[in-house]
Design a protein around this nucleic acid. Structure first.
Lengths: 180, 180
DNA sequence: AATGCTATTAACATTTGTGTCAATAGGTCT
DNA sequence: AGACCTATTGACACAAATGTTAATAGCATT
């Protein structure tokens, strides 16, 4: 529950909003209590990072393991990454610790392998490199979409509905890359 | 010169490295001097943000206005976004102030319009929506690539060279989307 | 040389964030 | 009830970041 409140502060106030005094105040508790639970302010931030990362992995897994058709999987992926918490997590990671990344270790590594297997199966017999490139394109654009999609949309004069349809368009296009 | 040092601290120490005492020490000057010039610590950070944004826009403009062939433009775009300073800028923006974004205002808006015109010209007569979608895909994946490309590469077991070739692959693929 | 301006500095003051501690309250187990 | 454990709190202590001020130095203009 505390971490939920902390996550909201990350969204609304950025990294500087992640201090124990403010979070404790939002939660209506004494800041000493926070220190007692997490050991230190840094410990609290690490716990939040872990928590948010697990949430992202879980959400991605849910999409992947659903029985949705291939094209809507991309739509869901983009929708997921546009959720404020998830893209802020990645932005935070990119800023704070360059050496560790939530998409490179532990359960997420397994998840990506899972995605890779799925796509490789679909393009039967073709080079795995192609599958990797396609996934790379899908994931990186989903991340970029989450981080500066709204800004790009604005400067390109795209309508709200057109922006909303972009994920579906990507879902249509990517399979074409397989065929050629 | 001060802002160059501040930018380096952003890369090496993240946002928490952007305090006037440390920056002043790196620069070998008194921290009061920094305050005198920028008015406040926040003013210094705003100046850095503006500075980095202008650098990004300038770099993008240089790529766009070069007479390089269309496919290498994508390669250059990706290379640009993988430069640490640029993707950290976007991550910082995404985290700190949700309402303002460097790709949505001022000179960058003009730049994106310029890109849009160029692509629209190439796909002669087709719907502008297609051009917008393609640009959206290219830019968003370039941003995502900059922010978590290395991590993705790692968890997908991609070799260094394959990751390096990804931009070129995108450069080959995107024109295909125009033809169909 | 005198004036005025700007840059720079050290020292101090304030504010904010973090951490410690002793005291209290509530619960569980014997 | 008594012993024990954990959670919580307020008060204080410490550290770090920011801001203020008076003094000094350098430099251009008159």
């Amino acid at each position: 529950m505390i971490l939920v409140i902390a996550g909201k502060r990350l969204e609304t106030h950025g990294i500087r909003g992640l201090n124990i005094k403010d979070i404790a105040q939002d939660a209506g508790i004494n800041h000493g209590t926070l220190l007692h639970h997490f050991g230190s302010a840094e410990g609290m931030r690490t716990a939040l990072l872990t928590n948010l990362t697990e949430a992202l992995i879980a959400d991605m897994s849910a999409i992947l393991n659903s029985d949705a058709p291939a094209d809507t999987i991309f739509v869901e992926l983009f929708r997921l990454m546009s959720q404020s918490g998830h893209n802020k997590l990645l932005a935070w990671r990119a800023l704070e610790d360059a050496e560790y990344s939530p998409l490179a270790e532990g359960p997420s590594e397994k998840l990506i392998q899972q995605i890779l297997d799925g796509v490789t199966r679909r393009i039967q017999g073709r080079d795995i490199t192609l599958a990797q490139n396609i996934i790379f394109l899908a994931l990186s654009s989903a991340v970029g979409w989450g981080i500066c999609g709204p800004a790009l949309k604005q400067s390109m004069g795209m309508s709200r509905t057109q922006q909303d349809q972009f994920p579906a368009w990507v879902g249509e296009q990517l399979p074409k890359l397989i065929q050629d």
